[in-house]
Design a protein around this nucleic acid. Structure first.
Length: 609
RNA sequence: UGGGGAUUGGUGUAACGGUAGCACGACUGACUCUGACUCAGUUAGUCUAGGUUCGAAUCCUAGAUCCCCAGCCA
């Protein structure tokens, strides 16, 4: 069945469901009132998604998959996307997390306040109506106050074969109502009682064994302050949040699949005694959205558990949530990744119900792919080795033209100074090169990018035999880096290698931070059960004596401005780097982060040998 | 030994009873003022066993393996 025009991406399973819903007219169409800022939306089938994080930590790349999915659907179907804080547990939630999540979602491009945005919501703003629904459930005989302690509930939970029990199950509704109000008024201590749904104590699905709706928590809430001392559980609250916001497709991860019967039960039960026109004894029917589960993102060499990431932060094993080695959005951003590259990555990996593990290299590739197109090229020497060009006049300085981006002729060029003393990369010189090494070595000739051909004449060593300097001669006829043309119009000579370089006296000094994977193991914790055992002790390398071309010391006018304000570059032959303002200002030293290396065929060959 | 899901090349993902395709990786080669990029080619797959059918990744039966569920977390 190829009813898609060539080049069209195949639909994922959620899109298939949406198409089916549209065909069936399941969710109706946008009214003029609902269309909001987009009149074009009026009359189109409703698709309304949301991203519902709990503000108990920073967002990570796994959340990015969900954000891109939900926002992407809203965009594709000209619908709406909400950001909603699922803040029903004051014990774990903080304003700091709320703020970071808002910033991260926006940075990713999922603008919940833009043309496809439905707005910003808080579950806690609905506490009042949720409480009313709870009272309604009691009146319908579908909920009761249970005075079992958490411990006792656990003991009475039963097994797959043996049903759970509660002695309070058949308590009169009036009594439950009175107790619930007392709970709300703070008359009872934490843990002394709960409100439970009256469903099925024998269900093989434990979620239906009279789940808790409300627990008593005397704690300050980041949004509602001290207004409440009872808080709704996730299962009870979530469907009402979706309902109130008019969400059509409530997308969550696979582990909530067993909760779907509960999700549906709550809405259905509230809707008992309600009618579409509001004439029922309990008023008007409330909206019932469709829960859909998909597989969360797993990455090799990466831990996505918020709890564990929090531990890394608290134990000081990383600099913080935004450490560039962290899989958090803020870490990845500080590392230099672009939102485009993350969106492309999420698009490439697809959406299914299969639990898979994506090679983290694919995320890096997505980043290279985008950065290659948009970053200006610069020359930087990370581990400097001095080269003295013996036949270049002392005191002479030339300003040479260097292209900013060979991929993009429109990016123009810049001037880079050249003189008698330059630095090259230490690893670009070998005194006794192996076969296949075609960089600089005694007697060989290489090109200095955009500059001249040079030939190594000798090596200078210190007392202990370390190479401290290389002597060379240059060919003045190769100015600009091109060999002179012969009578046949072809270059008179060719070199196999082109090296990056900087002028020694003009170079800007900087610190560069190189990052490796945070974990040594493809699946951290698999071997010993303790993820910390697989932490990579060498995941951060600081290079303190790097020399950069002078243009990096200032913001040049033709440097592209990224919307997030981050200055990103390709250091030729090395990789993609960005300035880390946080580290720079903290240390007083201009500091770059390496986002990702370039692919390096030679390193692969050399490693094999 | 209860319930709910999943299984297609190394990895990810299509195909919804009718030619198993795409992407990434890997490997070759071409090109190259980045050992990058780009381009061309090669590689390799339907969990197993039965059954239905002219025809099965797809439907049926049985089995295997993996994931989720007994928080007053989400």
């Amino acid at each position: 069945m190829s009813d898609h025009p060539a080049g069209d991406k195949p639909l994922n399973f959620i899109e298939h469901m949406i198409e089916a819903d549209i065909a069936a007219g399941r969710w109706g169409v946008w009214s003029g009132e609902q269309a909001g800022t987009r009149p074009s939306r009026v009359g189109k089938p409703r698709v309304h998604t949301r991203f519902p994080p709990e503000p108990n930590g920073y967002l990570h790349i796994g959340h990015a998959k969900s954000i891109c999915l939900n926002f992407g659907l809203a965009q594709k179907y000209d619908g709406k996307f909400n950001l909603r804080f699922d803040d029903t547990n004051p014990a774990k939630e903080e304003q700091e997390y709320v703020d970071s999540i808002k910033a991260d979602v926006k940075w990713l491009g999922a603008d919940f306040e833009g043309p496809h945005g439905g707005g910003l919501f808080y579950a806690s703003d609905l506490f009042g109506s949720m409480f009313a629904f709870a009272e309604e459930l009691i009146r319908k005989g579908k909920a009761y106050v249970c005075e079992l302690s958490a411990d006792e509930v656990s003991k009475r939970r039963g097994t797959p074969q043996i049903p759970a029990t509660s002695p309070f199950r058949d308590r009169p509704a009036e009594e439950s109502l009175r107790l619930l109000r007392q709970m709300k008024e703070g008359k009872h201590p934490d843990g002394s009682m709960t409100l439970r749904a009256r469903i099925d104590l024998a269900s093989p699905n434990f979620n239906l064994r009279d789940p808790v709706l409300y627990r008593i928590v005397h704690a300050e809430h980041h949004n509602t302050g001290g207004e409440w001392c009872i808080y709704p559980m996730y299962d009870w609250a979530h469907g009402f949040e979706d309902s109130a916001e008019g969400i059509t497709h409530s997308i969550c991860t696979l582990e909530f699949e067993n909760h779907r019967p509960l999700y549906d039960w709550f809405i259905r039960t509230v809707n008992e005694g309600r009618t579409p026109d509001g004439s029922g004894p309990f008023g008007a029917t409330i909206h019932h959205s469709q829960q859909i589960e998909f597989a969360r993102l797993n990455l090799t060499y990466t831990v996505m558990s918020k709890r564990f990431l929090l531990r890394l932060v608290q134990e000081g094993r990383v600099e913080g949530w935004d450490d560039p080695r962290m899989p958090t959005i803020s870490g990845i951003r500080r590392r230099g990744f672009t939102p485009e590259s993350i969106r492309n990555f999420c698009e490439e990996i697809g959406v299914t119900r299969i639990e898979s593990v994506i090679d983290v290299g694919r995320l890096e590739n997505a980043c290279r792919e985008h950065l290659n197109k948009v970053t200006p090229r610069r020359m930087s020497v990370l581990r400097p080795l001095k080269v003295v060009i013996e036949n270049y006049p002392e005191g002479q300085v030339e300003e040479l033209d260097c292209q900013n981006n060979p991929e993009d002729p429109g990016a123009g060029s810049r001037k880079v100074p050249f003189c008698r003393e330059i630095f090259i990369e230490r690893e670009d010189f070998m005194e006794n090169p192996p076969k296949g090494f075609f960089r600089l070595a005694p007697g060989t000739e290489v090109r200095l990018r955009w500059a001249y051909f040079i030939t190594c004449t000798s090596v200078v060593k210190d007392a202990s035999g370390n190479i401290v300097e290389v002597r060379a001669t240059y060919d003045p006829a190769t100015r600009g880096g091109d060999a002179p043309l012969g009578p046949d119009g072809k270059p008179t000579k060719k070199v196999k290698a082109t090296l990056h370089w900087v002028s020694a006296p003009h170079a800007v000094k900087a610190r560069v931070r190189l990052f490796d994977r945070l974990f040594k193991a493809e699946r951290p914790g698999e071997a010993t059960g303790e993820m910390l055992d697989d932490l990579n002790a060498q995941s951060l390398e600081m290079l303190e004596d790097c020399r950069l071309e002078p243009s990096l010391g200032v913001v040049s006018p033709d440097e592209p401005r990224f919307p997030d304000g981050i200055r990103r570059f390709q250091f030729e032959r090395l990789g993609y780097f960005c300035i880390d303002p946080k580290s720079s200002s903290a240390s007083g030293v201009l500091t770059f982060n390496r986002t990702v290396t370039l692919k390096d065929t030679w390193a692969k060959v050399a490693a094999k040998a």
